[in-house]
Structures are given as structure tokens and as C-alpha cells.
């Protein structure tokens, strides 16, 4: 019974960590792939071309 309750509550809350990780991941991708600030653009230039992001 206790185990069941624990499992159920774990399932209920585990969407939030997943959501947080998705936001963090997409944030990193946006920084490395899309942000046009020139320092970032220059540093990531070759990667953006090779990884298929719109670059210029």
C-alpha cells in the first residue's frame, strides 16, 4: 500500500522535472543555434552551418 502511494505520487510529480529539462535543453539549443549576438554567432558559426541552423 505504502509502495503504491509512493509510486503514484512519484508519477504525478515527474512531469515537472521532464518539463524543466526540456526548457533547459531548448534554451541551450537557442543560444548555440539561433541567437544572433555577434560574439555568439562568430563562435558558433561553423557549427551552425554544419548542424543545419539558419546562420546568416
Amino acid at each position: 500500500m505504502t509502495t503504491k502511494t509512493l509510486k503514484a505520487s512519484a508519477a504525478g510529480t515527474s512531469v515537472i522535472p521532464a518539463l524543466f529539462a526540456v526548457v533547459l535543453g531548448l534554451g541551450i539549443i537557442t543560444l548555440t543555434g539561433h541567437v544572433q549576438a555577434s560574439a555568439l554567432h562568430d563562435a558558433a558559426h561553423d557549427v551552425r552551418h554544419a548542424t543545419g541552423f539558419p546562420c546568416h
Partner: peptide, 14 residues
């Protein structure tokens, strides 16, 4: 490249 693929991997693991 490592950063970009880490971003992808975080989304995938989630």
C-alpha cells in the same frame, strides 16, 4: 557542438 548536442540530449532524456 558539445553544447548543442547536450541541449538535444536533455530534451531527449526528458
Amino acid at each position: 557542438t558539445m553544447l548543442t548536442y547536450t541541449g538535444y540530449a536533455l530534451v531527449m532524456a526528458a
